[in-house]
């Protein structure tokens, strides 16, 4: 196990390195000059020397090679650099948003697991009954519905519903406050995006739970357990469900990593100042350094989550050993 962990950690290095090189050069293919965007983006006139000062100030007047060397050196010494757009340290920019994105990802994951496992189990146990059909319909709808669209519907529903019932429209808060400062306010802001994304996410996990459980329920050891006269509840909960969770854990893990950096549209819909929104803005602003750093953060999260999922396999299925 120890050897496996060391090997996986070492494998992360070339993965991150490859991603860094790829991202650096890919971004340089996007046309656009951050200084022009910043200084003439609203159609005004600007002195050319100001543009030259801007370019020199953020280092884009250097050759691509030198920029690459700077970037890689920063990567080696864990220095993400400063945002070309705001001039703020990237660690600060990401740190500001990380907490919010992490909370939404955790809340969406919890919502999804709480919905997916009971429903998936129910659907498998009641296979081909009306309950199964309802659960399948519910989960297919979740897959079909983009979470941002569901988000828009939720906001409209809240605005129209509160206006109808309270006489004045209410929308969720749009300024983030940490949960430990004001839990009520925090939850009234984040519960909606968590539900919107959690529903779609639960739909995938529900279907995965159902099919994995159905497969396990046809295993010989389940038949043996039934033949021994064990209660169905014990068979499902103690023997079948745990073994059917391997693919579910994989899906949940990947989705969690995706949520950390991938909520680009949903964050816009709810005006969440998270990593997804920052990602969109950095690309639109052609802020190379920030975009690179964000991609690297997402890559790192994916690599880390996959690693944790692999470790979780061993706990879920004692037959799996990484020696």
């Amino acid at each position: 196990m120890y050897q496996y962990i060391v090997k996986r950690v070492l494998l992360m290095v070339p993965t991150l390195l490859g991603a860094a090189v790829f991202v650096f050069f890919l971004l340089r293919f996007i046309p656009g000059d951050i200084c022009e965007l910043r200084m003439v983006g609203e159609g005004g006139y600007v002195d050319e020397s100001a543009l030259a000062t801007c370019r020199a100030g953020i280092g884009i007047d250097k050759s691509i090679f030198l920029q690459f060397v700077d970037f890689m050196w920063g990567f080696v010494i864990f220095d993400l650099g400063t945002s070309m757009w705001t001039g703020q340290p990237i660690g600060y920019e990401i740190g500001l948003r990380f907490e919010l994105s992490l909370q939404v990802a955790i809340m969406a994951t919890v919502a999804s697991v709480l919905i997916a496992i009971p429903l998936g189990t129910l659907s498998a146990v009641k296979q081909d009954t009306w309950i199964d059909y309802v659960v399948r319909g519910f989960s297919i709808a979740g897959i079909a519905m983009p979470s941002f669209w569901l988000g828009i519907l939720i906001i409209l529903f809240l605005l129209i519903g509160t206006q109808a019932f309270l006489g004045e429209a209410w929308m969720p808060p749009i300024v983030y406050v940490p949960i430990w400062e004001d839990p009520g306010y925090n939850l009234s802001m984040l519960i909606w995006p968590a539900l919107a994304t959690g529903y779609r996410y639960s739909a995938v996990a529900t279907r995965m739970t159902r099919s994995a459980l159905l497969e396990v329920l046809r295993e010989d050891y389940v038949r043996t357990a039934r033949a021994k006269g064990l209660l169905e509840k014990i068979i499902i909960n103690r023997h079948a469900l745990k073994n059917s969770l391997l693919p579910v854990v994989t899906v949940v893990g990947i989705e969690f990593a995706f949520l950390m950096g991938g909520l680009v549209v949903t964050e816009q819909v709810f005006n969440l100042n998270g990593l997804g929104k920052l990602f969109v803005e950095s690309v639109l602003n052609t802020d190379y350094t920030l975009t690179q750093a964000l991609v690297m953060v997402v890559v790192a999260v994916f690599v880390l989550v996959n690693f944790l999922v692999d470790l979780l396999y061993a706990w879920l299925d004692p037959r799996i050993r990484y020696s």
Binding site: I152, L159, E168, W170, M171, I174, Q268, N273, E281
Partner: peptide, 20 residues
């Protein structure tokens, strides 16, 4: 004063409508 940064115009409109 308290100013909120929100690039999406739909959010701008909803914020005025929804009392934010």
């Amino acid at each position: 004063t308290e100013a909120v940064f929100a690039k999406k115009y739909s959010i701008n409109m909803q914020a005025i409508r929804g009392g934010r």
